[in-house]
Amino acid sequence: MQLKDIMTKNAKCCSADNTLEEVAGIMWNDDVGIVPVVDSENRLSGVITDRDIAMAAFLKHRPIWEISAREMIGGHSCHSCYAEDDVHEALRVMDESRIRRVPIVDDKLHLVGMVGLKDLANHAVSKGPRKSSQLTVNEFTDTFRHISKPNELQATA
């Protein structure tokens, strides 16, 4: 099954000029923990998570209304998948990058949706005839365990 079949379409996004306060407002109003950052042509530039905002507030010693999304995404890579990719590709990207959500783009890198662990879990346990391209519950739980494992600094604290 392709990611376009399980992704959340019309994901809320922001521009690099938005402040972290505005991004936090999007998260609050739409009950999401990640906001993709796009350019003027809706091409994916990066993402900001709720954790990114908390860490910026702590480490930059500045109010979040003074910190732009541009500051947060500059120089960082952004993992994404294509809408036509198989669901296993999103699971692979999440597993290797230890991320819980991944932006979905088209062939011109325009943001077209988001896929999170919830979407993959729902797909893995969906009822009906099982297809060879469907995730198994074991594939999903193995990835979830790996993503959720504390990093070395957290494990030793």
Rank of each mutant, 00 (worst) to 15 (best):
A69W: 01
R101Y: 03
R130E: 07
H61Y: 13
S97M: 08
Q154V: 07
N138L: 10
S77F: 10
R101W: 02
D39C: 01
K131W: 09
L111V: 11
G25N: 15
S15P: 01
N10S: 14
V112F: 03
H110F: 11
L135D: 06
S40P: 02
T49Y: 07
P103S: 08
D95C: 11
I6M: 11
H110Y: 05
P150W: 09
A11N: 03
S97H: 12
S15V: 05
L44C: 06
K149L: 08
M94K: 00
K60R: 15
V87T: 04
A54D: 04
N42R: 14
A57K: 08
R100V: 07
I34V: 13
R62G: 03
K131D: 12
A90V: 12
H88W: 00
D30I: 00
K4M: 07
M114Y: 07
T19Y: 11
K127S: 10
D30P: 00
G25E: 10
V47E: 00
D119N: 14
E89P: 00
D106E: 07
T19G: 08
D107Y: 06
P103E: 07
V137N: 02
D119K: 06
S133H: 10
L59Y: 14
T156L: 15
K149E: 15
V37Q: 07
R43P: 10
I147G: 02
E21P: 03
E22W: 06
C14F: 09
M114P: 08
M7W: 08
L91G: 03
L3R: 01
N122G: 04
K149P: 00
K9M: 08
D142A: 12
W65K: 12
G116T: 02
V47C: 14
S133P: 00
E22V: 06
G46Q: 02
R70F: 09
H146D: 11
A121R: 13
H61F: 13
I34P: 01
R101G: 05
D31R: 06
A57W: 09
L111R: 08
K149Q: 14
